[in-house]
């Protein structure tokens, strides 16, 4: 029993120590000290936003490229916390989804606090062919459903990806919209429809 506890206590720092540290540890430490000193709350943006969660720490320490066994474990943890809608339906209304995808509002100190917030989708992705002012930080989603169909598995993939992109790619650039309660299940369903509904302009 005692042995087990000692082993467990030893294992945690060993795991951290064995990470290939790309970030220079000394400068990273100083950067964090500097950040902790230099910010003030404004609007809804409180100082607690400066703290890393476990996943952010791992991504920050490894240049967004942790060893595979750690990535897999973290992805599984994130996936386990994905909540699916109570009614079991994953596709909502693509028209509402399109509206949501257009909005980049939410969570900045100049935004009105609280929900709803925008989906931010067009900031980074090409989606409907009608919207030409799209970003390129993420991959194009044009013809997403046309290319992949909309089987239950695909719906589940898209829903879980929007709910928590890190469940699929641990250090993805994409926010965890459901995980941080930015988007509600109904909203995520509408975005799933935008990508997968055959009637959505995305698939025309």
């Amino acid at each position: 029993m005692t042995k087990k506890i000692i082993l467990a206590a030893l294992a945690a720092p060993c795991l951290a120590a064995s990470l290939p540290v790309q970030a220079d540890a000394a400068y990273r430490g100083k950067a964090i000290e500097t950040i902790k000193r230099d910010f003030q709350p404004r609007g809804q943006a409180d100082l607690d936003r400066l703290a890393e969660d476990g996943l952010q720490t791992i991504c920050n320490r490894t240049g967004n490229n942790p060893p595979e066994y750690i990535a897999k474990r973290l992805e599984a943890d994130q996936m386990a916390a994905v909540k699916y809608p109570a009614d079991g339906k994953l596709m909502g209304d693509w028209k509402k989804g399109e509206k949501l995808a257009q909005s980049g509002r939410g969570f900045t100190w100049s935004d009105k606090p609280g929900l709803p917030v925008g989906g931010n989708c067009y900031n980074c992705h090409q989606i409907s062919p009608k919207e030409t002012a799209f970003g390129t930080v993420g991959p194009t989603l044009l013809h997403f459903g046309k290319l992949r169909g909309n089987t239950p598995e695909t719906q589940k993939y898209v829903y879980s990806k929007i709910f928590n992109a890190k469940a699929h790619n641990v250090c993805s650039d994409m926010p965890r919209f459901g995980h941080v309660d930015a988007l509600k299940p109904e909203q995520i369903k509408d975005l799933v429809a935008l990508l997968l509904d055959p009637e959505s302009p995305v698939n025309k």
């Binding site: 400068y27 890393e52 952010q56 920050n60």
Partner: peptide, 24 residues
């Protein structure tokens, strides 16, 4: 040294959307 710290700040992901300077 300040340049190195600046570089590390650009890597630092945090907040509700996991963004760092380098995300964009």
């Amino acid at each position: 040294e300040i340049w190195e710290i600046g570089k590390e700040i650009t890597n630092y992901r945090a907040g509700p959307y996991d963004f760092s300077c380098n995300t964009c």
